[in-house]
């Protein structure tokens, strides 16, 4: 059974937190330039319309490098990495993935998943999730 050493980890993170270091990620805000790029007019004759009803709709950048690989994460972490176990949307997850893959994080389900991917695949996933 996995027993994360939460006390030591919590202490380490407390130090990091109190020193003001960001634990990674490029920030939580939306990239405005992507939004303006996607409000063009399209001559599509298709009659399907899109209703982006939510004011906080996620706009993907359109990059497909690593996109399919990263989609393996969404069944547990939610579409695009929002809504499930730890949020991984616009996050830098490479070092975490590598830690899980190395066995340093015990033998829970996330370690089991990470260990099924190659390092190159993890780099691709992390790169995509950092800028989806």
């Amino acid at each position: 059974m996995e027993k994360p050493n939460w006390l030591l980890r919590g202490l380490a993170i407390f130090l990091v937190f109190s020193l003001g270091a960001c634990s990674g990620g490029s920030g939580d805000g939306e990239d405005i330039s992507n939004i303006s790029e996607n409000t063009d007019t399209s001559e599509s004759s298709n009659e399907n319309t899109t209703v982006t009803g939510s004011t906080a709709a996620i706009v993907l950048s359109g990059s497909s490098n690593g996109r399919l690989l990263a989609s393996n994460c969404y069944q547990c972490h939610g579409t695009n990495g929002i809504g499930g176990f730890d949020r991984i949307y616009k996050s830098n997850v490479l070092s975490d993935l590598r830690e899980f893959a190395s066995g340093a994080e015990g033998s829970g389900i996330m370690a089991a998943h990470a260990q099924g991917f190659t390092d190159a695949q993890m780099q691709s996933i992390a790169s995509y999730l950092a800028n989806p």
Binding site: S54, T79, I82
Partner: peptide, 12 residues
């Protein structure tokens, strides 16, 4: 209620 939906792009 708490999840942002993904927009369908019009520029692919």
């Amino acid at each position: 209620a708490g999840t942002s939906l993904t927009a369908v792009p019009s520029n692919t």
